[in-house]
Write a protein that binds this DNA or RNA. Structure first.
Length: 568
RNA sequence: UGUCCCAUGGUGUAAUGGUAGCACUACUGAUUUUGGUUCAGUCAGUCUAGGUUCGAGUCCUGGUGGGACAACCA
C-alpha cells in the first residue's frame, strides 16, 4: 500500500451526485438494514390516467430498484370502488410498460389484502384500539376540531370491545346503510397532527368493486391500507409525495400496533412535479376531458403519459427528463421548455428527416425541362449515417414555404426574394426572376431559374446563404397536420381560481390548428406513431387517426428557431 | 394564534464543515446544403440577523418567506 500515497477518491467521470433518497438507501445498504435489500413500489389509484408527474414517480421507484439491484412492484391502491375502474387499471399498466419498466410477476392490488386488513381491524378492536362510531361525518369532523385546537372525544369512544366487535361484524355483513357507522382507530384526539385524531379506518360503501365485486360492503381507508400493504409486500422504501408527510406518524402507528416482527417498511417523501403552462391534478384533467376542452385523456395537448405518447414523445425522452429534474423536497415548477428540450434531444438522434411544406407557395422552374423528374438520393439523418438514404423526386414545379419568400426582404433574410438566390436542399440553386399574385393580391407563384451546375453532391460549388426545403408538386402527398401549442396561455393556470374565474379561463384558444401540408412521397409507408423531422420545421409523428387514404400528423415540438426569435 | 416540511443564478438540481458546480433558459462567436445539430464562450446564485468554528450554503438560535395538514379521497 505504501506505493499508493494518493488515498483520495478522484472525482471520477461517473461519480454522479446522489439525491437524498439515494443517500438514505446507500446508508441503509451499508448498515445492512433490510438485509441490504431495496424494494420499492409504484402505487397508483386506478381512478384516472397517468400523467407526467406519475412518470416522475415511476422513474424514481423503478429506477431506484434498478440502480440498487432491487425490485419494484406495481400495486393498485384500489380501496375506493366508487372511483376506480378497470379501464384505468389497463391504461396504467400500458403506460408503465411503455415507459420501459417491468414489474415482472409483482402485480398487486390493495384489494388483495382486504381479508388481512379486516383481521387487523378486528385485532385493533380486541385490543381496545379501535371503535365503531355511529355519528354523522359532520359531527365527527366537528369533534376533530381544528389544527390549532384539540378535538373532543366521540361519545362512542369508550364502547366495550364486545359491542365494537358486534357492530363491526354487522357493518361487514351489510346490516347498515352507507354512512351509518365507521370504524375509527383510537389514537389521540388532542394530537397536533389532525391525522392522529382517531382516524376513520373503515367505512360502509355498498358499491361493486372492480375486482372483489360485491364481496365487501366495508372498505378500508388509505391510511389503514398503505403501510400494511407495503409490509405484506416486503417494501423497504415506500416513497410518496410531500402531502403525505403528515400521514407518516399514522403509517408507523398502524405498523407498530399490528406487527410483531422487527422489519418495517419506511415512508419517505419527495416533492411532486409541477409544470408551467399546464395543470396536473387529476380532477382538473378529468374536467378538461369531460367538458370536451380536449379530445380525451390522450389528447396530444394533455400532460398525460398517453397524451405525450400520442404527441410523439419517446419513453427515453421522458426518462431523461425525469433524470434531469432531479429529486428533492422543495416545491418546484419545471419549465416545459426542459421537457421539450428532452424530446428534441432524442428525436434529433433518431428521427428520419423528410421534406414537408405546410404553407405551400408554388415555384415554377422555367428552365427545367417539362416532364423531367430526377430522383435525388438524400440522407435520412445527418446525425446517423447508418440510417441510409431515401429517394426524393425533383421536378419543374415545387412547393416551398410562404415564409421563405419575401417581396421586400430585410437585410439578414437568407431566403428567397426578387432576384435573389437560394439552394433547394439536396437539389439545385435557384434564382427568383418573377412572381405572380392571385386575385386577392397574395403572392401565388414564383418563377425561378435553376443553375444546372449546382446539383448537390457534385463537388465544389458556390455557396448561397439560404437553403430551403421543398416538395415536388406533382409527387407531393397531402396530409392533415395538427399543430399544437400550449394548452394554457398563462404560466400558472392553477393560480387563477376564484369565484368568477377558474383555471379554464386561461385555456389557449389556439392550442390546436389543423392544416393540410404537402409532404414528400417517401412518407407513404409511415405507420402510426412513426416519428419524423420535417426539415427546418420540427418533429412530427403519425397520429392514430390516420387512414389508408389520409395521413394525419401531430407536431410534437417545433425546431428551435433563432430567426423567428430575433424577429419577434 | 398548533404541528410538520422547505429556502442555492430566471428555472431545476449538486456541493454530506474546506475552491459554490451541472443542466435548461438567455446572450455571443465558430462550424453547418436544416436560421436545426455540434463546438467554444458570456451573463447570473447560497432569504435574513445572530451564534459555534481556524473555516459555515452546510451545524445551532431567532426572524422572514413559501408549502402541507381540519375528505366516510388517495
Amino acid at each position: 500500500m505504501e506505493h499508493n500515497n494518493n488515498t483520495e477518491e478522484p472525482k471520477s467521470e461517473n461519480a454522479k451526485s446522489l439525491n437524498f433518497l439515494e443517500t438514505i438507501i446507500e446508508d441503509d445498504i451499508r448498515s445492512e438494514k433490510h438485509g441490504g435489500k431495496v424494494h420499492t413500489r409504484f402505487p397508483p389509484e386506478p381512478n384516472g390516467y397517468l400523467h407526467i408527474g406519475h412518470a416522475k414517480s415511476i422513474c424514481l421507484n423503478f429506477g431506484l430498484a434498478q440502480k440498487y439491484n432491487g425490485k419494484c412492484n406495481l400495486r393498485f391502491d384500489d380501496t375506493n370502488p366508487t372511483k376506480e375502474e378497470e379501464e384505468y387499471v389497463n391504461s396504467i399498466m400500458e403506460d408503465v410498460r411503455w415507459l420501459g419498466f417491468d414489474w415482472e410477476d409483482r402485480l398487486y392490488y390493495a384489494s388483495d389484502y382486504f381479508g388481512q386488513l379486516y383481521e387487523w381491524a378486528i385485532k385493533l378492536i380486541k385490543e381496545g384500539k379501535a371503535y365503531v362510531d355511529d355519528q354523522t361525518s359532520e359531527l365527527i369532523s366537528e369533534q376533530k376540531g381544528v389544527p390549532t385546537r384539540p378535538g373532543t372525544d366521540s361519545p362512542f369512544r369508550s364502547r366495550s370491545v364486545e359491542e365494537n366487535l358486534d357492530l363491526f361484524t354487522r357493518m361487514k355483513n351489510g346490516e347498515f346503510p352507507n354512512g351509518a357507522r365507521v370504524l375509527r382507530a383510537k389514537v389521540d384526539m388532542a394530537s397536533p397532527n389532525m391525522h392522529m385524531r382517531d382516524p376513520i379506518i373503515y367505512r360502509i360503501m355498498h358499491a361493486t368493486h372492480h375486482r372483489t365485486g360485491d364481496d365487501w360492503c366495508i372498505y378500508p381507508m388509505y391510511d389503514f391500507t398503505h403501510g400494511q400493504s407495503d409490509y405484506l409486500e416486503g417494501i423497504t422504501h415506500s416513497i410518496c409525495t410531500l402531502e403525505f408527510v403528515v400521514h407518516r406518524p399514522l403509517y408507523d402507528w398502524f405498523l407498530d400496533n399490528l406487527i410483531e416482527t422487527e422489519y418495517r417498511p419506511r415512508q419517505y417523501e419527495f416533492a411532486r412535479l409541477n409544470l408551467n403552462f399546464t395543470v396536473m391534478s387529476k380532477r382538473k384533467l378529468l374536467q378538461l376531458v369531460t367538458e370536451k376542452y380536449v379530445n380525451g385523456w390522450d389528447d396530444p395537448r394533455m400532460p398525460t403519459v398517453s397524451g405525450l405518447r400520442r404527441r410523439g414523445y419517446t419513453p427515453e425522452s421522458i426518462r431523461n427528463f425525469a433524470d434531469r429534474i432531479g429529486i428533492a423536497k422543495r416545491e418546484n415548477v419545471i419549465d416545459v421548455g426542459l421537457l421539450e428540450f428532452s424530446v428534441r434531444e432524442h428525436l434529433n438522434k433518431i428521427a428520419p428527416r423528410i421534406f414537408a411544406v405546410l404553407n405551400p407557395l408554388k415555384v415554377i422552374i422555367t428552365n427545367y425541362p417539362e416532364g423531367q423528374v430526377e430522383n435525388l438520393d438524400l440522407e435520412i439523418n445527418p446525425e446517423d449515417p447508418s440510417m441510409g438514404s431515401r429517394m426524393v423526386p425533383f421536378s419543374r414545379e415545387v412547393y416551398i414555404e410562404q415564409d421563405d419568400f419575401m417581396e421586400n426582404p430585410p437585410k439578414k433574410f437568407f431566403r428567397l426574394g426578387p432576384g435573389s438566390e437560394v439552394r433547394l436542399k439536396g437539389a439545385y440553386i435557384i434564382k427568383c426572376d418573377d412572381y405572380r399574385r392571385d386575385e386577392k393580391g397574395r403572392i401565388s407563384e414564383l418563377y425561378c431559374t435553376y443553375d444546372p451546375d449546382t446539383k448537390s453532391g457534385t463537388g465544389d460549388q458556390r455557396k448561397v446563404k439560404g437553403t430551403l426545403h421543398w416538395v415536388s408538386a406533382e409527387h407531393a402527398v397531402n396530409a392533415e397536420v395538427r399543430l399544437y401549442d400550449r394548452l394554457f396561455n398563462t404560466e400558472f393556470p392553477d393560480e387563477v381560481d376564484d369565484e368568477t374565474k377558474d383555471f379554464k379561463s386561461n385555456l389557449n384558444p389556439d392550442s390546436l390548428k389543423v392544416i393540410t401540408g404537402k409532404i414528400e412521397p417517401s412518407v407513404k409507408n409511415a405507420k402510426v406513431l412513426d416519428k419524423f423531422q420535417f426539415q427546418r420545421l420540427g418533429y412530427y409523428c403519425v397520429d392514430p387517426d390516420s387512414t389508408e387514404e389520409k395521413l394525419v400528423f401531430n407536431r410534437t415540438v417545433p425546431l428551435k428557431d433563432s430567426w423567428a426569435k430575433q424577429n419577434k
